[in-house]
Amino acid sequence: MNFLRKIVRPKTKEDEDFYYDLKDLLNFKPVVLNHYKKAFTHRSLKMTDKTGKPINYERLEFLGDAILGSVIASYLYKESPKGDEGYLTQMRSKVVSRENLNKLGKDLDLIRFVRSNVSRDQVGDNIHGNIFEALVGAIYLDRGYNYCHQFIYDQVITPYVDIERLEGKISSYKGLIIEWCQKTKKKYNFESYEDTGNQTKKHFSVRITIDGQKIAKGRSTSKKKAEEMAAKRVYFTFQNQITNS
């Protein structure tokens, strides 16, 4: 990549506003605005380029996810010299969890840049984390790895990464319950089924049994959320046993 190229000045008032908003957000001058426009384009617009390839943030999200993971992994490797592979993997998962990424996107108010044909209520919470990752991907294409590294350090590591706090945070209640059951030789079962009822939006319920006894139930708009909800209830039911096992 040639980073000595001249900055492409915005040609329209809309592009000029976007340019200066980005500059304030990134703390550096963006070069190719189209990378960033793509990072904030929702698939609902059904935009394509001259060759028919879709123009939206999803491929940039994939790229940004990989770069974000590598920067966090490097930081944890240096800051936790005694941590083994399992520890480092778990800590990285906590930092880049969907919950954290959504919070990052919300704190930066990235949704203000998004171009979409659907309302904000319809796109769901995960769009905040998705476009944060897409933004990282756009930075990489525009200015390279070093700029990504600095942006992630300023926006993620410095304000959010507290290793001691993260060590005590549970990233997956389902994983914790399964690990505890396997460790203590308990038989467990996660039973899921559609439970929409009178609501138009699809819902799922998950029932957890341990050693044949129904312990908890969770209900939400996705199977994964329902599992976490039910598993969290199991955790608080057996918290002392789990903590001391």
Results as ranks from 00 to 15, higher is better:
residue 69 G to K: 09
residue 8 V to E: 15
residue 9 R to Q: 15
residue 214 K to V: 13
residue 64 G to N: 04
residue 57 Y to W: 11
residue 114 V to L: 15
residue 136 V to S: 00
residue 113 F to K: 04
residue 159 P to C: 10
residue 169 K to W: 09
residue 64 G to L: 09
residue 137 G to W: 09
residue 189 N to I: 05
residue 7 I to F: 13
residue 11 K to F: 09
residue 157 I to A: 12
residue 141 L to P: 00
residue 96 V to A: 06
residue 217 K to H: 14
residue 161 V to C: 06
residue 207 R to K: 15
residue 137 G to D: 11
residue 216 A to T: 05
residue 134 A to M: 00
residue 47 M to T: 08
residue 67 I to C: 11
residue 114 V to E: 12
residue 137 G to V: 10
residue 54 P to Y: 08
residue 37 K to W: 15
residue 148 C to N: 03
residue 38 K to G: 00
residue 77 Y to F: 15
residue 180 W to F: 12
residue 151 F to A: 01
residue 74 S to H: 07
residue 197 G to W: 14
residue 151 F to Y: 15
residue 122 Q to K: 14
residue 170 I to F: 12
residue 130 N to C: 08
residue 197 G to A: 07
residue 60 L to F: 14
residue 221 T to P: 02
residue 26 L to Q: 03
residue 86 G to L: 11
residue 8 V to P: 03
residue 88 L to Q: 04
residue 33 L to N: 01
residue 48 T to L: 05
residue 56 N to Y: 12
residue 83 G to I: 05
residue 191 E to W: 09
residue 82 K to D: 13
residue 221 T to S: 14
residue 141 L to S: 01
residue 104 L to G: 00
residue 165 R to C: 04
residue 222 S to V: 04
residue 54 P to S: 08
residue 245 S to C: 09
residue 91 M to L: 15
residue 168 G to C: 08
residue 205 S to V: 03
residue 220 S to W: 01
residue 188 Y to S: 02
residue 216 A to R: 00
residue 35 H to V: 02
residue 245 S to T: 06
residue 13 K to I: 09
residue 191 E to Y: 14
residue 134 A to V: 00
residue 164 E to A: 07
residue 68 L to M: 13
residue 27 N to Q: 12
residue 219 R to N: 13
residue 90 Q to R: 10
residue 68 L to C: 08
residue 149 H to G: 02
residue 29 K to P: 00
residue 181 C to L: 00
residue 153 Y to D: 10
residue 33 L to M: 05
residue 64 G to Y: 03
residue 206 V to K: 04
residue 195 D to K: 12
residue 136 V to A: 03
